[in-house]
Nucleic acid binder design. Sequence first.
RNA 1: GGACCCGUAGCGUAGCGGAUAGCGCGACAGCCUCCGGAGCUGUAGGUCGUGAGUUCGAAUCUCACCGGGUCCA
Length: 665
Amino acid sequence: MYQRLTNRLREALAAHIREKYGVELAIVLERPPKIEMGEAASPVCFELAKKLKKAPRQIAQEIASTFGKVEGVARVEVAGGGYLNAYFDRAPFWTSARAERSNERRAASGQKIIVEHTSINPNKAAHIGHVRNAVLGDTMVRILRHAGNRVQIQNYIDNTGVQVADVVIGLLQMEQRTPTNVKRLAMEPRFDYYCWNLYAKATNFFSEDKERAARLRGATLKAIEEGRGEDAEAAQVVADAIVSCHLRTMARLNIHYDLLARESEILRLKFWDAAFEMLKESSVIQLATSGKMAGCWILPWKEDPKEVQEVKEIKDKIAEEEEENTQDKIIVRSNGTVTYVGKDIAYQLWKFGLLGKDFYYQMWANAPEGQTVWATTSDEGELNAPHFGEAASRVYNVIDARQGYLQDVVKEGLRRLGHEKAARNSIHFAYEIVALTPRCAAEMGYELSPEEAKKPYVEVSGRKGFGVKADDLLDKLEAATLAEVQQRHAEMSAEEQKKTAHAIAVGALRFFLLKFTRNAIIAFDFKDALSFEGETGPYCQYAVVRIRGIRRKGVEVGAAKIDVAVETAGHLLAGPEGNGLWELLLAAGSLDYAVEAAIATQEPAFVARYAFQLAQAFNLFYHKHHILSEADEQKRAFLLRLTELVEAQLVRALSLLGIESPEKM
RNA sequence: GGACCCGUAGCGUAGCGGAUAGCGCGACAGCCUCCGGAGCUGUAGGUCGUGAGUUCGAAUCUCACCGGGUCCA
C-alpha cells in the first residue's frame, strides 16, 4: 500500500515539475524521521534550486501551493530549508490497506527467473555456512514469487569433483570397503555425518604424502569423470546418498528445490564440449603456446579496449620481467581437463537457453516425504517432466563472496560470446561466510592459537571437519524451544508441542541468518542463535501469537462481529492524538515497500527488518491499548480490525522469510 | 603485483547524498487487581578508522593513508 501511494506521488511530482519548470528530474522520496513530518518527504527542491537559481524554500512554497490533488495524499507542506512533506489521507489508507490485504500474492506471470542455491559438495553433512546460502536463496525465491515472478529453484550437484573423490578414496582405499559394503553404509540415516569425519581423515591422509595424494586423486577423478569402474560406482552411491541427506536437512528448514542439476550430466551429455566449441570458434579462449601456461586454453582477462598500446606494452614487459603471468584465466588445463569455470560457463549458457542442448529429467527417487524433486539424467528421462530447459530472463547464483572472481569470469565469457544481455542478467548473489566466535570454537573443542583467540571470528573448515553441522544446530534449537514450550503449555499434546517447538526453532535460525545484510560476516555463537529475545524470529512470532490470543478471546466475548464505520476510523486516526494508531496502520501497510526494497537492493534482510519493526510497533500498541476491555464499542471494533490487519501482514512477512506463525507458543 | 569487501557506543549491526545517526545484546533503574513478561518504559554509552576534496548539505561520493578480511596470479 505504501509503495503504491508513494509511486503515485512520485509520478505526480515529476509531472508537476516538468510542467511548471520544464525540468526532468528523478524524484527522491524518503521516510521522514518523525510522523509529525508526514509519511513521505522529498528534497527535490534543493536539487531544483541549483538549476533555477532560486532559494529552495521558495521553490518548495511555489510547488506546495500549486501542486494538485493526488489520490490518497491529503496535503503537501514545506518544512525545514525546503523539504516537501506529504501527509496521507488516513481514513482512505485504512480502507485500501484492508482491501489490499485480501488480495493474495500477485499471479505468476512474466518471464522465468532461475535461482540457484545450496549447491553443496555431496561428500559430507551440511554446515551452518551452507544453511546461510540456502536460507538466503530460498527467501529470495519467496520474495520474487510474491512479486509475481515465475521462479525455478535449482541446486547444483558437483558429483564428479575432487571432494567426492576424496571420500571415495577414504571408503575404498583407506577403509578397504567393498562396493556392496559402501552401498549398505550409504543407507544409514547419518551417512552424511559419517562422511564428515571420513573426509577430514582423508584430508589428513593426503597431507602426509603429497605425491601419493596426487596419484590417487588423479586416477579416481578420471574414473569418476569417465563413469567407469568401482570408483565411479561408489562415487555415485556416495553423492546420491549425501544429496538425499541434504534434501532432508533443508526440508527441516522449509527449503525445497525444483531441480537438481548434476555435473555428471554436464559431462556425459557433452555440455562442456558444446561450450568449448563456441568459445574456440569465436576466439574467446586461446591456446597458449609459450610460457607457464603453454598447452592451456585461456581466457585473456580484462583487456581494457581504451588502454593505450604503449601502456599495455610496458605492463606486459613488467609481467615478463617478473616472470609473472598476466591475469589470464585458465579454462582448460594442459592435461586436457576442464576447470570449474569452464563447466560453469556451459551451465550458465544452458540456463539462458544459449547452449542448444538440454538435459533429460527424472524424479529424484529419495526425495523428502511428500515432495517432488526432479534431477537431471543422461538416460532417457520421463516424458512428463517440467520444461526445465526453457530460457531464463534472469539468473541468481547464490554463491559466497570468495568466488567473486570466478563469477566475473563466467559473466565475461558470456559477454565475449556476444551474449551481453545474458551477462548483465547473471547475478552473483554473493554473501559473506559464517564463521565462529573464538569462544564458540573453543566450546566445540577446537584448539585456538593465540592469534586466533584474539580475532573476532574463526573460519570453519569442511576439510578439517571443523564447523557447526546444520542438523546438530537444529536439534539443539529444537531441544531448547521444546523445553520452553513444555513449560508454558502443559495442556498441549506432545505432538503439538513438538510442532510448535520446531516452528520456533526454524524461526529463530532463519531470522538469525536473515537479519544481517549479505556482506556482513556472521560470527556464529550458540548464545546468540539460541536467543529468543529482542531482534529475533521468536519475537516476531510472539507478536502473532498475542494477536491470535486476543482474537480467540474476542470471539468468546462476541466483540468480533461489529463493523467499523469509516468515520470512526477517520476520527480515531485523526490528528496528533491519532498518531499512535496511525503509525501502526502505516507500518502494517508498508509490506509492499519492504518487498520492493528487498528486490531492488537484493537484500532479503529488508523483509526481516520489516517483520521486526511491525512486531515492535504492535507490542507498543498492545501495551498502550487494552483492546477487549475498551468501553466504546466502535473503538473496540476498530482496534480489533487493526490488530487483524497487523496479523495478516506480519504472518505474510514471516512466510516470505520461510517462518511459520504458530497458534500458541 | 592486481582486484574485491569491511572499519558506526562495551559487543553485534542498520542507514550508503538530505532533517536530532537508528536497532538489538550487555549494564543500570522501573512496569503484572487488566487481552500471555519470548513483553514494555526509562537512563548511561557515538571525534560514524584518519586526513583532504566534491557539494547548499557527507557515516553515505572521490582520493590518499591506517587497520582487518578475501580472491587472482
